[in-house]
């Protein structure tokens, strides 16, 4: 499988990465090189093989259903580019 310029633009948008028009062709080439490299997996017979979900066999651990942390709102917003009264500020999303 290989990607065309439209697919590059669509994937960039899905990934929320702005791509300039003059970058599209270059990216298309690079993505296709990687896709061509991984293409060899198609020759492996995976009939009846379970996909890996956990590399070390282990049961999912359960935690006590209690509050163990909190009261650190200052810490949570400490690195935010814009915040006010412990809220993150974003550009207007509702007209």
């Amino acid at each position: 499988m290989s990607v065309d310029a439209d697919t590059v633009r669509r994937v960039a948008h899905l990934a929320r990465i702005a791509v300039a028009e003059d970058e599209v062709e270059n990216l298309r080439g690079e993505l296709n090189a990687i896709l061509a490299f991984v293409e060899q997996l198609a020759e492996v017979n995976v009939e009846g093989v379970e996909p890996m979900t956990s590399v070390m066999p282990m049961a999912m651990k359960m935690r006590e259903d209690v509050v163990t942390d909190g009261g650190i709102a200052d810490d949570i917003v400490a690195n935010a580019p814009a915040h006010e009264h412990h809220f993150f500020l974003v550009p207007k999303v509702v007209e």
């Binding site: 499988m1 993505l31 997996l41 492996v44 093989v49 996909p51 890996m52």
Partner: peptide, 25 residues
């Protein structure tokens, strides 16, 4: 972008799921 592509609708089985099966092998 590669990661987004292989997880996107229609390609997940061909790429990601197959790779995870190969990982089992």
């Amino acid at each position: 972008m590669i990661g987004t592509y292989v997880l996107s609708a229609g390609y997940y089985d061909a790429y990601y799921l197959r790779a995870q099966k190969v990982r089992t092998l």
